[in-house]
Simulated scan of single mutants.
Amino acid sequence: MSLIGEERKDYILNQLNLEGKVRTNDLVDTLNVSSETVRRYLEELEDENKLKRVYGGAVKINLSREEPSQLKREVLHAEAKRMIGRAAAQLVEDNDVIFIDDGTTTLHTIDYLLNKKNLTVLTISIPALYLLIDYKNKELFSGEIYFLGGKVNALHSRVAGSMAEQMVEHFYADKAFLSVDGMMIGRGITGFDEGKGRMTQQFMKHAKQNIVLSDQSKFGLVQFYKIADLKEIDIIVSDVPVPKEWEPNLAAKNVTWITAN
Protein backbone atom coordinates (compact mmCIF):
# COMPACT_ATOMS: atom_id res chain seq x y z
CA MET A 1 0.00 0.00 0.00
CA SER A 2 1.41 3.37 -1.04
CA LEU A 3 1.58 6.33 1.32
CA ILE A 4 -1.26 8.04 -0.51
CA GLY A 5 -3.29 4.85 -0.19
CA GLU A 6 -2.76 4.81 3.58
CA GLU A 7 -3.74 8.48 3.74
CA ARG A 8 -6.97 7.71 1.90
CA LYS A 9 -7.73 4.88 4.32
CA ASP A 10 -7.08 7.25 7.23
CA TYR A 11 -9.55 9.66 5.66
CA ILE A 12 -12.16 6.90 5.47
CA LEU A 13 -11.66 6.04 9.14
CA ASN A 14 -11.87 9.70 10.12
CA GLN A 15 -15.16 10.01 8.25
CA LEU A 16 -16.47 6.98 10.12
CA ASN A 17 -15.57 8.68 13.39
CA LEU A 18 -17.36 11.79 12.21
CA GLU A 19 -20.49 10.30 10.67
CA GLY A 20 -20.55 6.65 11.70
CA LYS A 21 -20.82 5.62 8.06
CA VAL A 22 -19.35 6.29 4.60
CA ARG A 23 -20.86 5.95 1.13
CA THR A 24 -18.88 4.54 -1.79
CA ASN A 25 -20.14 7.19 -4.22
CA ASP A 26 -19.13 10.02 -1.87
CA LEU A 27 -15.65 8.53 -1.43
CA VAL A 28 -15.23 8.18 -5.20
CA ASP A 29 -15.93 11.90 -5.60
CA THR A 30 -13.91 13.08 -2.59
CA LEU A 31 -10.84 10.89 -3.12
CA ASN A 32 -11.01 11.17 -6.91
CA VAL A 33 -10.54 7.44 -7.42
CA SER A 34 -12.57 4.66 -9.02
CA SER A 35 -15.29 2.76 -7.23
CA GLU A 36 -13.12 -0.36 -7.53
CA THR A 37 -10.33 1.39 -5.63
CA VAL A 38 -12.73 2.48 -2.90
CA ARG A 39 -14.09 -1.04 -2.58
CA ARG A 40 -10.53 -2.35 -2.23
CA TYR A 41 -9.83 0.14 0.57
CA LEU A 42 -13.02 -0.88 2.35
CA GLU A 43 -12.20 -4.57 1.97
CA GLU A 44 -8.73 -4.03 3.43
CA LEU A 45 -10.11 -2.02 6.36
CA GLU A 46 -12.74 -4.69 7.00
CA ASP A 47 -10.01 -7.34 7.01
CA GLU A 48 -8.27 -5.21 9.67
CA ASN A 49 -11.54 -5.22 11.66
CA LYS A 50 -11.80 -1.43 11.43
CA LEU A 51 -15.20 -1.20 9.72
CA LYS A 52 -18.08 -3.28 8.43
CA ARG A 53 -18.98 -3.14 4.76
CA VAL A 54 -22.66 -2.70 3.89
CA TYR A 55 -24.52 -2.14 0.65
CA GLY A 56 -23.32 1.16 -0.83
CA GLY A 57 -20.50 1.78 1.66
CA ALA A 58 -19.43 0.92 5.19
CA VAL A 59 -20.31 1.60 8.81
CA LYS A 60 -18.29 1.77 11.99
CA ILE A 61 -18.13 -1.50 13.88
CA ASN A 62 -20.33 -1.53 16.96
CA LEU A 63 -19.36 -4.77 18.64
CA SER A 64 -22.23 -4.75 21.08
CA ARG A 65 -25.57 -3.09 21.64
CA GLU A 66 -25.40 -4.14 25.26
CA GLU A 67 -23.15 -2.66 27.91
CA PRO A 68 -20.36 -5.03 29.00
CA SER A 69 -20.23 -5.90 32.68
CA GLN A 70 -18.01 -3.97 35.06
CA LEU A 71 -15.42 -6.77 35.04
CA LYS A 72 -15.28 -6.90 31.24
CA ARG A 73 -15.08 -3.10 30.95
CA GLU A 74 -12.06 -3.03 33.26
CA VAL A 75 -9.87 -4.87 30.76
CA LEU A 76 -11.04 -3.09 27.58
CA HIS A 77 -8.54 -0.42 26.43
CA ALA A 78 -7.04 -0.44 29.92
CA GLU A 79 -3.85 1.48 29.10
CA ALA A 80 -5.72 4.20 27.21
CA LYS A 81 -8.13 4.57 30.12
CA ARG A 82 -5.25 4.92 32.58
CA MET A 83 -3.69 7.70 30.48
CA ILE A 84 -7.03 9.48 30.19
CA GLY A 85 -7.63 9.22 33.94
CA ARG A 86 -4.23 10.73 34.70
CA ALA A 87 -4.77 13.62 32.28
CA ALA A 88 -8.25 14.27 33.67
CA ALA A 89 -6.96 14.38 37.24
CA GLN A 90 -4.67 17.24 36.27
CA LEU A 91 -7.80 19.37 35.81
CA VAL A 92 -8.73 18.95 39.49
CA GLU A 93 -7.65 21.74 41.83
CA ASP A 94 -7.37 21.85 45.59
CA ASN A 95 -10.74 22.47 47.30
CA ASP A 96 -12.74 21.25 44.30
CA VAL A 97 -16.08 19.49 44.61
CA ILE A 98 -16.29 16.88 41.85
CA PHE A 99 -18.75 14.33 40.50
CA ILE A 100 -17.17 11.08 39.33
CA ASP A 101 -19.51 9.22 36.99
CA ASP A 102 -19.71 5.46 36.81
CA GLY A 103 -17.19 4.04 34.37
CA THR A 104 -13.84 2.31 34.22
CA THR A 105 -12.21 5.36 32.61
CA THR A 106 -13.45 7.80 35.24
CA LEU A 107 -12.38 5.27 37.88
CA HIS A 108 -8.74 5.72 36.86
CA THR A 109 -8.98 9.42 37.71
CA ILE A 110 -9.09 8.58 41.42
CA ASP A 111 -5.56 7.11 41.44
CA TYR A 112 -4.17 10.52 40.53
CA LEU A 113 -6.10 12.62 43.05
CA LEU A 114 -4.07 11.62 46.09
CA ASN A 115 -1.93 14.77 46.17
CA LYS A 116 -4.95 17.08 45.98
CA LYS A 117 -6.07 18.86 49.13
CA ASN A 118 -9.54 19.30 50.59
CA LEU A 119 -11.45 17.56 47.80
CA THR A 120 -15.07 16.51 47.99
CA VAL A 121 -15.95 13.58 45.72
CA LEU A 122 -19.49 12.46 44.91
CA THR A 123 -20.09 9.26 42.96
CA ILE A 124 -22.61 6.57 41.99
CA SER A 125 -19.88 4.05 41.23
CA ILE A 126 -19.42 1.26 43.78
CA PRO A 127 -15.82 0.51 42.65
CA ALA A 128 -15.04 4.22 42.95
CA LEU A 129 -16.48 4.25 46.46
CA TYR A 130 -14.41 1.22 47.51
CA LEU A 131 -11.25 2.73 46.02
CA LEU A 132 -11.78 6.07 47.76
CA ILE A 133 -12.48 4.32 51.09
CA ASP A 134 -9.32 2.24 50.70
CA TYR A 135 -7.19 5.31 50.00
CA LYS A 136 -8.88 7.15 52.88
CA ASN A 137 -8.16 4.33 55.34
CA LYS A 138 -4.53 4.23 54.20
CA GLU A 139 -4.37 8.02 54.75
CA LEU A 140 -3.56 8.58 51.09
CA PHE A 141 -6.76 10.53 50.42
CA SER A 142 -7.82 13.22 52.86
CA GLY A 143 -10.96 14.53 51.18
CA GLU A 144 -14.66 13.94 51.80
CA ILE A 145 -16.61 11.14 50.10
CA TYR A 146 -20.33 11.17 49.28
CA PHE A 147 -22.05 8.11 47.84
CA LEU A 148 -25.25 8.97 45.97
CA GLY A 149 -27.42 6.03 46.91
CA GLY A 150 -30.27 4.47 44.99
CA LYS A 151 -31.20 1.24 43.26
CA VAL A 152 -28.15 -1.00 42.90
CA ASN A 153 -27.25 -2.42 39.50
CA ALA A 154 -25.15 -5.42 40.51
CA LEU A 155 -23.90 -6.29 37.01
CA HIS A 156 -22.46 -2.83 36.48
CA SER A 157 -21.61 -2.05 40.13
CA ARG A 158 -23.42 1.28 40.28
CA VAL A 159 -26.59 2.91 41.53
CA ALA A 160 -29.21 4.83 39.57
CA GLY A 161 -32.92 5.55 39.64
CA SER A 162 -35.15 8.29 41.02
CA MET A 163 -33.71 8.24 44.55
CA ALA A 164 -30.16 8.75 43.30
CA GLU A 165 -31.33 11.48 40.93
CA GLN A 166 -33.05 13.28 43.80
CA MET A 167 -29.87 13.12 45.89
CA VAL A 168 -27.90 14.90 43.17
CA GLU A 169 -30.39 17.78 43.40
CA HIS A 170 -28.93 18.65 46.82
CA PHE A 171 -25.37 19.21 45.56
CA TYR A 172 -23.40 21.48 43.25
CA ALA A 173 -19.93 20.64 41.96
CA ASP A 174 -17.07 22.46 40.32
CA LYS A 175 -16.43 19.67 37.82
CA ALA A 176 -18.20 16.54 36.58
CA PHE A 177 -16.09 13.73 35.11
CA LEU A 178 -18.39 11.87 32.77
CA SER A 179 -18.31 8.51 31.00
CA VAL A 180 -20.03 7.79 27.67
CA ASP A 181 -20.61 4.80 25.40
CA GLY A 182 -20.77 6.70 22.12
CA MET A 183 -19.83 10.10 20.72
CA MET A 184 -20.53 11.56 17.30
CA ILE A 185 -20.71 15.03 15.79
CA GLY A 186 -24.39 15.81 15.26
CA ARG A 187 -25.55 13.07 17.65
CA GLY A 188 -23.74 14.15 20.82
CA ILE A 189 -22.86 11.78 23.64
CA THR A 190 -24.89 8.62 24.16
CA GLY A 191 -25.10 5.65 26.51
CA PHE A 192 -26.36 2.08 26.62
CA ASP A 193 -28.61 2.58 29.63
CA GLU A 194 -31.35 5.16 30.13
CA GLY A 195 -31.09 5.13 33.94
CA LYS A 196 -27.33 5.68 33.91
CA GLY A 197 -27.79 8.33 31.21
CA ARG A 198 -30.22 10.29 33.40
CA MET A 199 -27.70 10.25 36.24
CA THR A 200 -25.04 11.66 33.92
CA GLN A 201 -27.49 14.37 32.87
CA GLN A 202 -28.06 15.24 36.53
CA PHE A 203 -24.34 15.58 37.08
CA MET A 204 -24.10 17.91 34.11
CA LYS A 205 -26.91 20.13 35.38
CA HIS A 206 -25.22 20.52 38.76
CA ALA A 207 -21.61 21.08 37.69
CA LYS A 208 -19.87 24.26 36.58
CA GLN A 209 -17.70 22.32 34.14
CA ASN A 210 -18.53 19.10 32.28
CA ILE A 211 -15.61 16.89 31.28
CA VAL A 212 -16.09 13.79 29.09
CA LEU A 213 -13.52 11.01 29.32
CA SER A 214 -13.52 8.84 26.19
CA ASP A 215 -11.07 6.56 24.40
CA GLN A 216 -11.17 6.44 20.62
CA SER A 217 -13.27 3.25 20.52
CA LYS A 218 -16.34 5.40 21.37
CA PHE A 219 -15.93 7.78 18.42
CA GLY A 220 -18.52 7.49 15.67
CA LEU A 221 -20.84 5.31 17.76
CA VAL A 222 -24.43 6.12 18.68
CA GLN A 223 -25.98 4.13 21.50
CA PHE A 224 -29.55 3.80 22.76
CA TYR A 225 -29.88 6.81 25.07
CA LYS A 226 -28.93 10.38 24.17
CA ILE A 227 -27.26 12.08 27.11
CA ALA A 228 -26.42 15.50 25.72
CA ASP A 229 -25.34 17.52 22.71
CA LEU A 230 -21.64 18.27 22.39
CA LYS A 231 -22.32 21.98 22.97
CA GLU A 232 -23.13 21.07 26.59
CA ILE A 233 -19.60 19.67 27.07
CA ASP A 234 -16.70 21.88 28.16
CA ILE A 235 -13.75 19.50 27.80
CA ILE A 236 -13.12 16.13 26.16
CA VAL A 237 -10.14 14.08 27.37
CA SER A 238 -9.08 11.26 25.05
CA ASP A 239 -6.14 9.02 24.29
CA VAL A 240 -5.80 10.37 20.73
CA PRO A 241 -5.77 13.84 19.15
CA VAL A 242 -9.06 15.30 17.99
CA PRO A 243 -10.12 13.99 14.55
CA LYS A 244 -9.39 16.77 12.07
CA GLU A 245 -12.92 16.68 10.72
CA TRP A 246 -14.25 17.34 14.23
CA GLU A 247 -12.13 20.43 14.90
CA PRO A 248 -14.36 23.11 13.29
CA ASN A 249 -17.51 21.74 14.91
CA LEU A 250 -15.96 21.51 18.38
CA ALA A 251 -14.41 24.96 18.04
CA ALA A 252 -17.82 26.40 17.17
CA LYS A 253 -19.22 24.80 20.33
CA ASN A 254 -16.26 26.01 22.48
CA VAL A 255 -15.31 22.44 23.38
CA THR A 256 -11.68 21.98 24.45
CA TRP A 257 -9.92 18.73 23.51
CA ILE A 258 -7.13 17.34 25.70
CA THR A 259 -4.95 14.50 24.43
CA ALA A 260 -3.63 12.28 27.20
CA ASN A 261 -0.01 11.15 27.03
Rank of each mutant, 00 (worst) to 15 (best):
W246P: 05
V33H: 08
Y225K: 01
R40E: 05
Y146I: 15
Q209M: 13
L113Q: 10
V22G: 11
I126S: 04
F203Q: 01
A164D: 00
V237I: 14
T106Y: 03
N14S: 15
I227P: 03
K244N: 15
A88C: 09
I236R: 05
P248M: 04
Q15L: 15
L250Y: 02
T120H: 11
V255T: 03
F192Q: 05
K231I: 13
D101R: 08
G182M: 06
D215S: 09
E44V: 14
E44Q: 15
V222C: 09
I189F: 08
I133L: 14
V159C: 11
D234S: 12
I236W: 10
Y41Q: 11
A176R: 01
A89V: 09
Y135V: 03
E245D: 15
V212Y: 08
D29Y: 12
Y41K: 04
L148Y: 01
I12Y: 06
A88Y: 04
S125D: 11
V54P: 03
V168G: 01
G149F: 04
L230Q: 00
V22T: 11
K60N: 06
A87H: 03
N32H: 09
G182E: 04
K151P: 00
A87I: 09
G5S: 09
A78N: 05
R53Q: 06
A80I: 08
L178S: 04
N210E: 09
G188S: 07
G195S: 13
E43G: 06
A89E: 05
Q202W: 05
E6A: 15
Y135D: 06
A228M: 11
I126M: 04
A128K: 02
R187Y: 13
F99G: 00
D234A: 09
L76D: 04
L114I: 14
S238K: 12
G150M: 03
E169A: 06
L91Y: 00
M183Y: 08
V97K: 05
N118R: 13
K81R: 13
F147T: 05
E19N: 14
A80D: 12
I235M: 03
G188W: 10
K205E: 10
Y172S: 10
E79Q: 14
N115R: 08
M204C: 02
E232T: 05
L63T: 07
V237S: 04
S34W: 02
S34D: 02
K196V: 03
T109W: 00
V75K: 15
Q15C: 15
V33N: 01
I100V: 15
V54Q: 12
M167C: 04
D94V: 12
K218V: 12
D96L: 01
